[in-house]
């Protein structure tokens, strides 16, 4: 028994140490998330952090005894006898069935509250219609009756409500920095009343058509990228669009047509030959070496107000 107590105490000491090392490694380096750029991202990252602690702990309580056993409980040279006949311990079995149930319930409750916080609506949301199609995105600002083929432009710290639909197959809207992801479903393209692009004629009410809804609040100025996350055919990999999060003054200037979107730093720094993928971003072609992308052309904003 004293020998067993020695084994248990070594394992008992090692488990917290390994937990700490693994947690540190995955949270600060190995599974480090992209910089959080929306309010929702911080909420989700809390849950990520909880999971990382759980992963580190469970990893330790399995791997430490496993590795310890492998290194200590080996067959000794010439020993052909069997190991002790220990075949069950009901208390232990019940413990490791019931304790995880509590853990599961805890994470379940956390998961629900976390999800509710992520999808909660906020006052003064700006509605933007998003249309996915093979293999690009279009953004329509109903408040300004303005269609942007080039990029999604958002204002820092102002919550947005995206109403999304697809013209052909299922796509998925995902900006890694914002964390949130939503599949986008096709609708009846022939029916003008269901088509976001038809502007004022858009009226889905009689058809029970419900666009997919996603909410988030961008909190960091910068350039991000929408990535289609549902396989949609030939050019799925390059179904991308830029997202610009602008400061309030720049945003107002952009709406007024006075602000040209900055060139994407990723494009400026990239090398010739990487163009196949980058092509998709701003519809420029690379034929004779690398050309920096022209600033996106803006259609004049017809502000009704």
């Amino acid at each position: 028994m004293s020998k067993n107590a020695k084994h248990f105490s070594i394992v008992g000491i090692l488990i917290p140490i390994v937990t700490a090392i693994v947690y540190y490694t995955i949270s600060t380096f190995f599974f480090e998330l992209p910089e959080a750029a929306s309010a929702e991202a911080s909420i989700i990252d809390d849950l990520f952090n909880g999971h990382y602690i759980l992963i580190a702990f469970l990893f330790a309580i399995v791997v430490v005894p496993l590795v310890y056993s492998i290194s200590v409980f080996r067959q000794e040279e010439g020993d052909e006898t069997d190991a002790p006949h220990i075949h069950e311990n009901t208390t232990l079995e019940i413990a490791w069935t019931v304790l995880p149930i509590f853990l599961v319930i805890g994470f379940g409750i956390w998961g629900v509250t976390n999800y509710n916080a992520v999808i909660a609506s906020e006052p003064d949301e700006i509605t933007i219609y998003v249309q996915g199609y093979k293999w690009d995105w279009t953004f329509y600002y109903p408040d300004h009756d303005y269609k942007s083929d080039q990029a999604l432009v958002l204002q820092e710290d102002v919550p947005v409500l995206l109403e999304m639909q697809s013209s052909d197959v299922i796509h998925a809207f995902w900006v890694p920095g914002f964390r949130v992801k939503q599949d986008v479903y096709p609708y009846d393209t022939e029916n003008q009343a269901l088509n976001f692009a038809s502007g004022p004629d858009y009226d889905p009410e009689p058809y029970h058509f419900k666009p997919q809804v996603m909410r988030f609040t961008p909190v960091k100025e910068g350039v991000y990228r929408v990535r289609c996350a549902e396989i949609c055919g030939t050019s799925h990999y390059s179904m991308l669009a830029n997202v610009f999060v602008l400061s309030p003054s720049n945003y107002q200037a952009w709406l007024a047509g006075d602000y040209l979107l900055p060139p994407d730093p990723n494009l400026v720094n990239s090398q010739p030959g990487e163009g196949y993928y980058l092509d998709a971003l701003n519809d420029f072609t690379i034929e004779n070496g690398f050309t920096p992308p022209p600033p996106p052309e803006l259609a004049p904003v017809e502000d009704e107000g």
Binding site: P65, R74, D82, W96
Partner: peptide
């Protein structure tokens, strides 16, 4: 995770104090 955990822990208990080859 619960029944999967049962499997893992039972394996560990099987290995513990074994004479492994």
């Amino acid at each position: 995770a619960v029944p999967t955990g049962v499997k893992f822990f039972s394996w560990l208990a099987t290995i513990w104090e074994g004479k492994m080859r």
